[in-house]
C-alpha cells in the first residue's frame, strides 16, 4: 500500500487513512466512503473531484464528524495535526469545529439563518470559541466582512441574509468560517450555486485569503475548471474510492485513470479550436450503491476494461511520475493491450 503523504512536497496538516463511512438501511449497507486515503498539505489546496454520489461530501462531513444517522464512520483514521480526531470526544470535537477546521457549504441561500443579522451570525463563532463579549464580537464581525471584501461593512452587519445577493452571502459564509482563523477550511462546492462571474470572484477571494492567512483548503467540487484554477493537489473520487491522487498539473497534462480522462474529455474547451468535434461522454451511469460491481468500480463504464477489471478491485498504486492511481493498466498484472493509450485525446 502506498502512503498518501508520499506525493506531498509539504508537511501534511490532515491525513485521511482508509476512511470508511457507511449508511445503514433496513436491508443493506451503502458504503458511501470506502477506504479513502489522501493528505492535505499545510497552506495548500487539495481538490476532491467526482460526480454526484461519489462520496466527496460525505468525506468532508466525516472529517468534521458531522455524519448523522443512519450514517456512521466505521473505520479508518483521520489525523489532524498528528492526532486521530475519530478518537476525540464530542466536546473536544466542538472545540475543533469552526475553530481549527471550518466548513463552507454549497448553498449560500440556505446556509444562513433567516432570523438573525449577518453580524449576529459571524459573532456566533467568536462567542462560541473565544468567549468574546457581544459588542466586541460585533466589531470583529465588521472587520471580517471587510476582510472578505464586502463594502460598507458597518452597515452590512445589521442586514439580514435576505437583503444580500448570493455572492454576498457566500462571502458572509466565508467570513463566518474564517472568523476563528482555522488551519483547515473545507469548502463543499462553494461556487456551484453562484453564477460564473461571481464564482470567479469567490475563488479569487479564497485564494487571496489563503495567501494572507496561510490556511489549508479542501476544495470539494465536480468542476474541473475550479480545480485547475485553485488546487495544488487533486483526488479524483469514484463510488466512494479515490481512483487518482496527483499533483494538479499532472492530472491536466497527463491524466492516467480512464475515469479522469473521461471527465476531462467531457469538459468543453474554450481556449483551443477543436473544429466540429462533439463532446465525449462517459457511457453508462453510476451503479446503484447497493449493487456494487465486484471488481474495479469503474469497470462497467470503462472503455478499456478486461476480465481482470471486472473480477478484481485494483489497489491505489504509485505510478511512474510519483502520483497514485487505482487502475490495473498501470500494473504488471494487466491482461489487456500492453500499448493501450488512455490519455485524453483533446488535452494539449
Amino acid at each position: 500500500m502506498v502512503k498518501a503523504t508520499d506525493i506531498l512536497d509539504q508537511e501534511p496538516i490532515l491525513e485521511v487513512k482508509d476512511l470508511q463511512t457507511s449508511f445503514f438501511t433496513d436491508k443493506f449497507e451503502v458504503k458511501a466512503v470506502d477506504g479513502v486515503n489522501f493528505a492535505v498539505p499545510k497552506g495548500k489546496t487539495l481538490g476532491i473531484v467526482g460526480e454526484s454520489g461519489s462520496g466527496k461530501s460525505i468525506t468532508s462531513l466525516s472529517i468534521l464528524r458531522l455524519i448523522q444517522n443512519p450514517g456512521k464512520i466505521i473505520g479508518g483514521e483521520i489525523l489532524f495535526k498528528g492526532e486521530n480526531i475519530l478518537k476525540k470526544s464530542e466536546a473536544e470535537m466542538r472545540k475543533i469545529r469552526g475553530n481549527e477546521i471550518s466548513m463552507i457549504f454549497q448553498e449560500p441561500m440556505t446556509s444562513l439563518n433567516p432570523v438573525y443579522t449577518v453580524g449576529q451570525q459571524i459573532s456566533e463563532s467568536f462567542m462560541i470559541h473565544q468567549n468574546m463579549s457581544k459588542k466586541e464580537a460585533m466589531k470583529r464581525s465588521a472587520e471580517m466582512l471587510e476582510l472578505v471584501g464586502i463594502p460598507s461593512p458597518k452597515q452590512r452587519v445589521k442586514q439580514y441574509p435576505h437583503e444580500l445577493s448570493g455572492g454576498m452571502r457566500q462571502r458572509v459564509m466565508i467570513a463566518i468560517a474564517l472568523a476563528c482563523d482555522p488551519e483547515l477550511l473545507i469548502a463543499d462546492e462553494p461556487t456551484t450555486a453562484l453564477d460564473v462571474t461571481i464564482q470567479a470572484q469567490i475563488l479569487e477571494l479564497m485564494k487571496d485569503l489563503q495567501d494572507r492567512l496561510g490556511m489549508s483548503i479542501i476544495m470539494i467540487t465536480h468542476d474541473l475548471g475550479v480545480v485547475a484554477e485553485t488546487c495544488d493537489y487533486v483526488a479524483v473520487m469514484y463510488m466512494g474510492k479515490v481512483v487518482e491522487y496527483a499533483k494538479v498539473r499532472d492530472v491536466f497534462k497527463n491524466p492516467k485513470h480512464p475515469y479522469t480522462v473521461g471527465l476531462l474529455n467531457s469538459l468543453p474547451r474554450h481556449d483551443i479550436d477543436l473544429g466540429d468535434v462533439e463532446l465525449q461522454v462517459i457511457e453508462g451511469s453510476v451503479p446503484s450503491p447497493d449493487n456494487l460491481p465486484k471488481g474495479c468500480r469503474f469497470a462497467p463504464r470503462c472503455p478499456f476494461a478486461t476480465e481482470l477489471c471486472h473480477e478484481k478491485l485494483p489497489d491505489l498504486e504509485q505510478s511512474d511520475n510519483g502520483n497514485q492511481i487505482r487502475c490495473w493498466i498501470y500494473t504488471d498484472e494487466w491482461d489487456g493491450d500492453q500499448e493501450v493509450d488512455v490519455s485524453a485525446k483533446r488535452t494539449t
Binding site: 470535537m93 472545540k95 469545529r97 475553530n99 446556509s111 444562513l112 433567516p114 456566533e124
Partner: peptide, 17 residues
C-alpha cells in the same frame, strides 16, 4: 434539515445552542 443548522453545527455550536 435546513443547511444553516448544519452550518452552525460545523461552527462547533452545542446542541442546546
Amino acid at each position: 434539515k435546513l443547511e444553516y443548522i448544519d452550518a452552525v453545527k460545523a461552527l462547533g455550536a452545542s446542541d442546546a445552542r
